[in-house]
């Protein structure tokens, strides 16, 4: 809607000023954080203003027509509205922000932010709402979920740039129970997540140097299983640990590791003719693909080498290195 644009701009402007002011006033927040009166802000909502106008109109009518009944009604409504102010405020007061987790993701996909509250006094978890503005100014909002006394929130902001994603200020608000007032609090927490490069590129994966010609996937005779992990949908039933399942344990999958699996070296310098981002993206694609296949690989970046390895932790290390490569620290 075109008409609302200037207001939207004004609103956003005011919001960012208020945000910065609260940052200066409160300083950096550390978890766990108990919300005290000093940091709670409360204002009527649009509905609250409408309600106030209604009550004023009723009072004016009562005064004008000297009708005590109408006046009494107006004062009752005014009193109820005002007690709503306290009730809304009370829902945030004493609340504890217990934990915040930020999970990384690849550029272009959503990070996962999870915030857990404790000591909440709302009627339901979704009385509370958490919101943030992402780097494009888009407002992301989530209602609380879970038990009423400990709501949790999940926000999925999308990061476009690889590297460290700094958590913007979060806003926690509550309009319950009347919807006439909104009480909110700014949370300025220092937290960041790694944004891995976007996997892209179609350069073929460099062949493993030591056993060229060895066909992939035919190493059945030289594998051994080495770990159990919970069975996931899609796992081959052949890999299921039926014996332990028969003993009454949860269904698990055996993880196999190729003893003589392919060993690659992914070298940054080999990707000539591409710019930095494309190279990083290509390497990321290779790392993911190799881990998916269960291959071992080493990663060679200018100024950093990650030795041959495999598995989830190895992949994590490589992705972290790739995420931060070439960025100012």
């Amino acid at each position: 809607m075109a008409a609302s644009r200037p207001f939207e701009w004004l609103r956003r402007r005011g919001e960012s000023v208020a945000q910065r002011w609260s940052r200066r006033r409160q300083g950096l927040d550390r978890i766990p954080l108990t919300l005290h009166t000093r940091r709670l802000y409360i204002l009527p909502t649009a509905s609250g203003l409408l309600f106030a106008a209604t009550v004023l109109a009723i009072l004016a009518a009562g005064l004008n027509y000297a009708n005590g009944l109408v006046l009494l009604l107006g004062f009752f409504l005014a009193g109820t509205g005002l007690s709503g102010l306290h009730q809304t405020h009370r829902r945030l007061l004493g609340l504890v922000v217990e934990s915040l987790t930020l999970d990384g993701a690849h550029a272009g996909s959503a990070l996962s932010l999870r915030l857990c509250l404790g000591e909440a006094r709302g009627q339901a978890a979704d009385d509370y709402q958490l919101s943030l503005r992402d780097e494009h100014g888009k407002l992301l909002q989530a209602h609380g979920e879970g038990p009423a006394e400990a709501p949790t929130f999940t926000l999925l902001p999308v990061a476009t740039q690889r590297g460290r994603w700094q958590l913007p200020p979060l806003r926690l608000d509550c309009e319950a129970p009347t919807g006439l007032f909104r009480c909110w609090v700014w949370l300025h927490m220092e937290a960041s997540a790694l944004v891995f490069p976007r996997p892209a590129g179609n350069t073929p994966m460099p062949a493993a140097p030591d056993d060229e010609g060895h066909a992939e996937g035919s190493t059945s005779g030289q594998e051994e299983w080495f770990a159990l992990r919970p069975f996931r949908d899609g796992d081959s039933p052949r890999h299921a640990a039926w014996k332990s399942h028969a003993r009454g344990q949860p269904l698990q999958s055996r993880e196999w590791r190729g003893l003589s699996g392919n060993r690659h070296v992914f070298d940054y310098t080999q990707l000539a003719g591409l710019d930095l981002e494309s190279r990083v993206s290509q390497l990321t694609a290779w790392v993911l693909e190799a881990t998916r296949r269960g291959d071992s690989f080493a990663l060679q970046l200018p100024g950093r080498r990650i030795e041959t390895g495999s598995g989830a932790q190895h992949q994590q290390d490589c992705l972290e290195a790739l995420a931060l490569h070439g960025l100012p620290t």
Partner: peptide, 14 residues
């Protein structure tokens, strides 16, 4: 109890 409850709520834990 608060400690235990927190581990059950924590999304990062299996």
């Amino acid at each position: 109890q608060a400690l235990i409850a927190h581990t059950r709520r924590d999304a990062t834990l299996q």
